[in-house]
Amino acid sequence: MAELLDIFRALADPTRLRVVALLREMELAIGELAVVLDQSQPRVSRHVRILAEAGIVERRREGSWVFLRIATEGPASGIAVNAGEWPFSEGEALVIANDARRLAAVRAERAAAAERYFAEHAVEWDAIRSRHVAESEVEAAMLAMMRGRGLGHLLDIGTGTGRMAEIFAPAAHRVTALDRSPEMLRIARTKLAGQGVPIDLVQGDFLNLPLADASIDSIVIHQALHFAHEPDRVIAEAARVLRGGGHLLIADFAPHADEDLRTRAAHARLGFSDAQIRNWFDAAGLALESAQALEGGDLAVKLWLGRRRDGQSRSPLSRNDKRLAA
C-alpha cells in the first residue's frame, strides 16, 4: 500500500505527468527534458528525482550525460506504460501535444548531430570499407548464419552506430546495444528510435559487461574484437553472460599485415585466424559451429559462430588465469 501511495503522490503533479508522457516516447537526457518542458535543469532534476524515488523512471549515466526512461520493472512500470490511456482533460492533452512537437525538435537535433559526426569521420571509415567486401554482403552473411537460431535477448557488443542492433532487431525479443563511447551511443539512439522491440542502449566495456551471468540468449560482435588487446578476455566475458545453448557471432578481419591500421585506426590486433578463435572459444566454454570467409579487396572478413555448451553458465576462463597465446 505504501509503495502505491508513493507512486500516486509522485504522479500528482502536472510537470511530472508531462515527463512520464515524454519518456513513453523515447529516452531523454535531463537537458533535453528541460528544453521540451521549457523549465530550468535544476527544477526538472527535482521532478525526475521524485519520479525515480517512486520507481517510475530509471536513470542511466553515459559519460557526462544522464539518460532517463520509464522503469521496466516494478508496479510503477505498468502504470506508466499505460499513461496514454489516462483521462487527460482537454487542456492537459493540449499541453502534451505541444510537448510532442518540441520533442520532434529534439529528435531532429540528435539526427543533425549524428550527421555532423559522420561527416567528420566519413573519409576515415570509407577508406577502410573500400578495402574489403561490401558491408551489405557482410550483413547478409551474418543474418544468414544466425537465421533460425532463436535470438531472444540479443546483445550487440561494440554497437557503434547501432547498425547490428538495427538489422537483428526484427528477429529478437529484446536488444541490448553496448558501447564504451557516449558519442556513438547517441548516434545509435537516433538510428534505433522506433524499433518494434525494446532496445536498451548501455555504456560499458567489453571486458566488464554490466550484465548478469547467463542472462543473454545471443551475442554479436561486429568489427570490434580487433580493438581488444586481450581478445580472449572479451570472448570469455561474452561467454559468461551467454545462456547455455546461446550463440556468439563474431565478424572481423582475417590475419593481415597492414600496420597502418594499428597506427592510424587504433587496431590492437591485425585480424584473427580460425585456430585462435577456436582456442579462445573452447577455453570460454563455446563450441565453434561454423566459420566463413568473405573475400574481396585486400582485407578478408571472417565470420565465426560459436554456441555456449549446455549446462555451463559461467566462463571457465578467469581474469587471473594464464592468457592464451595470441
Rank of each mutant, 00 (worst) to 15 (best):
M142K: 04
A140P: 06
G160C: 06
M164N: 13
D126I: 03
L143G: 06
A141C: 09
R147V: 01
A165M: 06
W125N: 03
R149Q: 08
H153M: 08
A165S: 15
A165W: 02
L154F: 12
G148C: 06
S136W: 03
A127S: 14
V133F: 05
G150V: 07
H153Q: 12
L151S: 01
E120F: 07
I167C: 09
T161A: 14
E137L: 11
E120V: 13
A144N: 11
G160Q: 00
R149I: 04
E139L: 11
R147I: 00
L143W: 00
L151C: 03
H132S: 08
G158C: 01
E135P: 01
G158P: 02
L155D: 05
T161E: 12
A122N: 15
E137G: 06
R163C: 05
E139S: 09
G158A: 01
T161S: 14
M146W: 00
R147D: 02
E124M: 15
A122D: 14
G158E: 00
G148A: 03
A122K: 15
R131C: 02
S130L: 04
A141I: 05
L154R: 04
G162C: 05
I157D: 02
D156H: 06
E124V: 15
E135I: 12
T161L: 12
I157F: 06
V123Q: 13
G158Y: 00
G152Q: 03
A144K: 12
E139D: 13
E120G: 09
R163V: 11
M145P: 02
S136Q: 15
E120P: 03
W125T: 01
E137S: 13
T159H: 07
A122P: 07
T161V: 11
R147G: 04
V133P: 07
R163P: 07
T159I: 11
R131W: 04
M142I: 03
L155P: 06
L151K: 00
A144Q: 11
G148D: 04
W125E: 07
A144P: 07
E139A: 14
S136D: 13
S130H: 06
L154K: 05
D156I: 10
V123N: 11
A144H: 08
G148R: 02
R131E: 06
A140V: 00
T161M: 13
R129K: 15
D126S: 15
R147C: 00
D156C: 14
M145Q: 12
D156Q: 07
I128Q: 11
T159E: 06
A140F: 00
R147H: 02
H121N: 15
